[in-house]
Design a binder for these strands. Structure first.
Lengths: 246, 246
DNA sequence: AAAGTTAATTTGTCATACAAATATAAAATA
DNA sequence: TATTTTATATTTGTATGACAAATTAACTTT
């Protein structure tokens, strides 16, 4: 890890420090679970004050790149960056992006339709028994009519994530996590209505069957059916919302 | 904007403050270009010290949610969150994810192939004159053999981004930004060899033509050709790398 | 009236001190 | 001796106060 301050930069010191540390993590000088020097030590090496170092560390913490603990064996450590660790990071990004730019649902759902179809095709080919079990488990959760709408939603998210994972393409899974989250507000809405819950779980049941039998065409058709159905519900909800306002 | 500290939370104060401010941005209490209170004012309202407030602000700055300027008319402002503003954020996430999880290039490139084909199809339908101009401009940059490898890469990224934008589906563009970045290391490698540069720009020229003429089939074929070509180069590079080691 | 100068405001940085958490080692107790 | 308690050192978390740097607005001078 090279800790010399580079050429003169107009940006703030804390940003410069953060960028250098991030660089060190990115190029592998700092590996997962490595412990950074203490804040005092960093302050000495970078020739800046501790508050400045702390601001830099908080920037990295916001990106989930590091974690800190107090105490003698504590300190600041480099995080593992798995799909799940990235998901809250991505969730805020995608949710924010979708909400702040008022991206229309068709834009989201059409993209998701294409991507999830791709997932299903790959899943049909590559799904393992473990994948099927995971999907079965989440489906079981959804079938339980006693669970709360929140839990239903969470199980729904996990079911779709399981499909993504079953593709055994980690890049595709990574992207799908973003899309699943972005469509979640609509799914949340649905979870409060029991009739719709039955329809969704019915689709999931058939989808699981199709993937088990490795029937790509059928699986894609069911995905299309579900997303079209969600679009439709969203449209209805918006209409009734507009009626309320008039 | 509600500035009361919520229920007791074990997480650090700076994180709590950051979360509340982010919430305010997310739910629209703080809109783009709104100015936050001064740091002293925030410190008073949240009943914490200024360094703590600053740590919180740096967390949000790391996510590109805010920007700050000094001076009487300065202060901290809420950012617009466009695709490009998010790209920093996403770039580190995707690059890190790919490198830390040792995701194989086929996983990335196969995903990108599917997604970019989709982009091309939509771009053929929806491309405007402005889209075509943008692509032409970036292609022009690439044709100039005097530019540095770094500039060539940057122009390449912008060219592919322009294709994504031409789809006029913001969600798809958003996702594509991630994938383009993730494949960049390979593209970087190529930029240092002039022969390959010519081949790539040739493909781009034909691709632009296909999109102009709205020939979906041709456009997709060229994308497939390019990505296959990149995979091949990567494979060769790895082989020669292994030879060196033996 | 135009130009330069000063003052005020706000973020950026620093120095120092103390609080809180936590692991280790020492000491007291059963 | 074994176990619990206590002290202690280390490290992050927070607070206070001060000054520097940037930048705008008002004022003064030519």
């Amino acid at each position: 890890m090279s800790l010399a301050l580079g050429p003169v930069n107009k940006s703030s010191l804390s940003k410069q420090v953060a960028d250098q540390l991030q660089e060190a993590i990115l190029d592998g000088s700092l590996k997962a679970d490595d412990r950074l020097p203490t804040e005092d030590e960093l302050a000495k090496r970078f020739q800046v004050s501790r508050p400045t170092i702390r601001e830099a560390l908080k920037r990295l913490a916001a990106k989930n790149l590091i974690r800190s603990r107090r105490g003698p064996t504590g300190g600041t450590f480099v995080n593992h960056l798995g799909t799940s660790e990235l998901s809250d990071h991505l969730t805020t990004a995608s949710t924010l992006y979708v909400s702040m730019n008022q991206i229309s649902l068709p834009e989201v759902s059409s993209t998701r339709l294409e991507m999830e179809s791709l997932c299903c095709q790959l899943a049909c080919t590559h799904r393992t028994d473990a994948d099927l079990e995971k999907m079965e488990f989440e489906l079981g959760q959804q079938l339980d009519s006693r669970i709360s709408p929140e839990d239903f939603c969470a199980a729904d998210v996990r079911f779709h994530r399981a499909i993504a994972e079953a593709s055994h393409n980690r890049m595709l899974s990574f992207v799908m996590y973003t899309l699943i989250e972005a469509l979640q507000p609509v799914a949340n809405m649905i979870a409060y209505r029991f009739r719709e819950r039955e329809i969704i779980t019915g689709q999931h049941k058939r989808l699981l069957g199709a993937i088990r039998e490795q029937n790509k065409t059928l699986a894609c058709a069911i995905i299309a059916e579900q997303i079209t159905y969600l679009d439709q519900l969203h449209e209805e909800a918006q209409e009734s919302h507009q009626q309320k306002q008039t």
